[in-house]
Design a protein around this nucleic acid. Structure first.
Lengths: 335, 335
DNA sequence: CTGAAAGCGCTTACAG
DNA sequence: CTGAAAGCGCTTACAG
């Protein structure tokens, strides 16, 4: 069978506890003994059994990442996986492992979270917005379980979460347009009910207003985020009595429609009409011309989340906190 | 502290072993005792400590998923995450958990795998092609560690792997074109050195040859998989002396270039020129007209991989095996 | 059908 | 500086 701490102890002629102390770097061990034990470890090619360690220490060094993991998820929601990678990277750096859990098939809401807590199979939990339910939230709070949520939960101010600041994104977009001298800028958004779209719009309109260039109501358009709707909206805007000099697209699909409309109308970009889009993915790479983008460092958001939970684990008295990340402007050829 | 098996035993007035047997469904327990124990479990809201169980049983019920998890990975390689979801789903169904491990930052190749084996932190391992090295392969074989590799490793015939059959994909594409009556079909591929592109081309040309409609050499074009190259290639093909009636695009980016060229040339699709592409993602949704696609059920491939490793775990004598998945034809408006 | 006991492989007060 | 011993919370032959 596999070599155990006993074998090492025997080989080094010391007790099991001494071996354990050497492995864990206790300072009370004499250099000579430590060296002898290290030799034995090397000679026997010993590696501590991770399960035994975790069991004896009552800490798993494992974090659960809770999310939705259905079919097509990777295509529909690549951001979630990018965040996951960021979280993983940070956890790994600190010696934690990461286990994935899908909450979609729970028979009872909160089932997974209560199981994780009850079976003590993880030291902490990272919850992606798509997997957050009120049940999960109250279980976590009731057990004071170390956690961080990706995305503002909207309810409960006792949870620890991280989110991106879409309002600020809108502001950055507006500032860029203004700095280019495009005072007549339109905004093509997604559905009026879409929270992200709302936030971005708010950031845009607020900034224009503050600069003294109020965006007229007819220059703010809502769509179903389809290329077709964005296409028609663009044509309509540009053939109106007061055509905008530039367009801010709330997402990539809209930008695809806008770019195509500009091409069909023979408008030179950015000389005649400029545009800008939020997000680099999924389509900004195939939009012509390569657009200016207000992007979010999604991976970094995952890193921040991972870092926060590690810090909470190392320092349980750490306060509940909420924070947001900054958007980034990447200049392209469309402004 | 948390309630343990002892508390349940005390409450039910039985021994710890009896409680354990009830939990594990041993048939030797009398219904009366079982009921009493179940009551106590409910009353105390007892859940076995997963770590203790795993430790006592010497099985982790955990599988490691080894891959590359860098920044932008989710955007550059969504397929990998789709496979991951499939694997996860299947593992979860069988009661296994899944831990992610990134091999990119190993100081020594094979470090991660040897650690997983040495620390016994997983019962088995799923290795994505991007994380497979010769070191990993030989460690796995040396330790006879339960594994499955996603993607044909190309070396060693002792490994267990699963892959997609791109040759068959090419065949399906060709058969579809022939069934539409497009006997003069061109193939626009990626780089000549790209293995997937080669396989697909081989499937296409082989099938046409067998049907008596050999594809002329000038109708097989290699590109750098850029839209621009595909665009020029299309124009060239269609303005040649012997223009093809249809085009098979080796990937989505090529299809984008082809579709755009057809649009600019004013060709009616599929009446004048038809085309077809491999893969639904990332861009087939934004190609006009919506193309016919030869797709792969990537999620299902993950499911198959997960299923295989579970079966190997349950039946260690299961033979080494290699197998491939079937492509699927999704008709669109381009053929 | 049930239970006492050994054991899984470590960690960690505690004593010396 | 080192070690004997208890303990982490279960499982599982084994005896009865």
């Amino acid at each position: 069978m596999a070599v155990t701490i006993r074998d090492v102890a025997k080989a080094a002629g010391v007790s099991v506890s001494t071996v354990s102390k050497v492995i864990n770097g206790w300072s009370t061990i004499s250099p000579a003994t430590a060296a002898r034990v290290q030799d034995a470890i090397r000679a026997l090619d010993y590696t501590p059994n991770a399960r035994a360690v975790s069991f004896a220490r009552k800490a798993t060094m494992n974090i659960v990442f809770l999310t939705s993991l259905g079919k097509e998820e990777a295509y529909k929601n690549p951001h979630m996986f990018e965040i996951m990678c960021g979280v993983y990277g940070e956890l790994a750096k600190h010696g934690y492992s990461m286990t994935l859990i899908d909450t979609r098939k729970e028979a009872v809401p909160g089932e997974m979270v209560s199981r994780i807590i009850a079976t003590r199979s993880a030291d902490g939990i990272v919850i992606h917005g798509s997997a957050l339910s009120r049940e999960n939230a109250s279980l976590i709070l009731a057990h004071q379980f170390p956690h961080i949520i990706i995305g503002n939960p909207g309810f409960s101010n006792q949870l620890c979460w991280i989110d991106t600041n879409h309002l600020l994104g809108g502001q950055f977009a507006a500032e860029h347009m203004l700095s280019c001298g495009y005072e007549r800028t339109a905004f093509i958004g997604g559905r009026k009910t879409d929270v992200i779209s709302q936030q971005r719009q708010k950031g845009v309109t607020g900034t224009f207003l503050k600069s003294g260039h109020r965006i007229p109501r007819e220059h703010i358009v809502y769509t179903d985020s389809s290329r077709e709707a964005a296409y028609s909206a663009t044509k309509e805007l540009l053939t109106s009595e007061n055509p905008p000099r530039a367009i801010i697209c709330e997402n990539n699909t809209i930008a695809l429609g806008v770019a195509r409309a500009l091409e069909h109308m023979g408008k030179k970009v950015p000389e005649e009409v400029a545009f800008l889009t939020f997000d680099s993915y999924p389509y900004s790479a195939v939009i012509d011309p390569h657009p200016t983008v207000i992007d979010i460092d999604v991976y970094d958001m995952g890193v921040q989340a991972g870092n926060t939970i590690v810090r909470k684990l190392e320092n349980p008295s750490l306060l509940v906190q909420q924070f947001t990340t900054l958007p980034i402007l990447c200049k392209g050829k469309s402004t």
